[in-house]
Amino acid sequence: MSSKLNGKVALVTGGTTGIGLAAAKDLANAGAVVYITGRRQAELDKAVAEIGQNARGVRGDVTQMSDLDALYAQIRSETGKLDVLFANAGGGTMAPLGDISEQHVDDTFNRNVRALVFTVQKALPLMPKGASIVLTGSTAGSKGTPAFSIYSASKAAVRALARSWVYDLKERGIRVNVVAPGPIRTGGLAELGGTSKEAQDGLLAYMASQVPMGRLGEASEVARVVTFLASDDSSFVNGAEVFADGGIAQV
Score class of each variant (00 low, 15 high):
Ala32His: 11
Thr186Met: 04
Ala95Phe: 01
Thr108Asn: 07
Ile174Met: 10
Ala230Gln: 12
Ala22Thr: 10
Val176Phe: 10
Ile75Arg: 05
Ala140Lys: 06
Ser138Gly: 14
Ser152Gly: 15
Val12Glu: 12
Val120Gln: 06
Gly91Met: 03
Val226Gly: 06
Leu11Gly: 06
Leu216Ile: 06
Arg175Tyr: 07
Gln53Met: 10
Val176Ile: 11
Ser2Val: 02
Val134Asn: 08
Val222Ile: 15
Asn238Arg: 01
Ile174Phe: 07
Ala30Phe: 00
Leu135Pro: 13
Ala157His: 09
Val211Asn: 15
Thr16Arg: 07
Val226Leu: 03
Arg39Pro: 10
Gly188Asn: 08
Ile36Lys: 05
Asp45His: 03
Asn177Gly: 11
Phe243Cys: 00
Ile133Cys: 13
Ser220Gly: 13
Ile36Val: 13
Phe86Val: 06
Pro181Gln: 10
Gly194Ile: 11
Ala230Phe: 13
Met1Trp: 09
Met65Tyr: 11
Val120Tyr: 06
Tyr151Ala: 06
Ala240His: 08
Leu21Lys: 07
Ala199Asn: 14
Val211Cys: 10
Leu135Ile: 14
Ile184Ser: 00
Glu171Gly: 03
Leu68Pro: 01
Ala190Thr: 00
Glu198Lys: 12
Ala30Gln: 14
Tyr72Phe: 15
Ala205Val: 03
Glu221Asp: 11
Ala10Cys: 10
Gly80Pro: 04
Arg40Cys: 01
Val242Glu: 02
Val251Ile: 05
Leu27Trp: 13
Ala240Trp: 05
Gly247Leu: 00
Gly217His: 07
Arg185Ile: 01
Gly60Asn: 08
Ile19Trp: 01
Leu203Gln: 08
Arg56Leu: 04
His104Phe: 04
Ser235Ala: 12
Gly246Glu: 04
Asn177Cys: 12
Asp168Gly: 09
Gly187Phe: 01
Pro128Ser: 14
Leu71Thr: 01
Gly20Leu: 02
Ala208Phe: 07
Leu97Ser: 04
Leu161Phe: 13
Glu171Tyr: 01
Val176Asn: 11
Leu85Asn: 05
Ile248Lys: 06
Asp61Asn: 13
Leu11Cys: 07
Phe148Thr: 08
Val134His: 09
Thr195Phe: 03
Glu171Met: 07
Ile174Arg: 09
Ile51Gln: 05
Glu50Arg: 04
Asp45Gly: 02
Ala190Asn: 02
Lys46Met: 09
Arg56Met: 07
Gln250Asp: 02
Glu191Gln: 14
Ala42Phe: 00
Ala47Leu: 01
Arg215Trp: 11
Ser231His: 11
Asn177Leu: 10
Val113Gln: 01
Thr13His: 12
Asp245Ile: 01
Met94Ser: 15
Asn6Asp: 15
Ala95Gln: 04
Gly91Asn: 05
Ala157Ser: 14
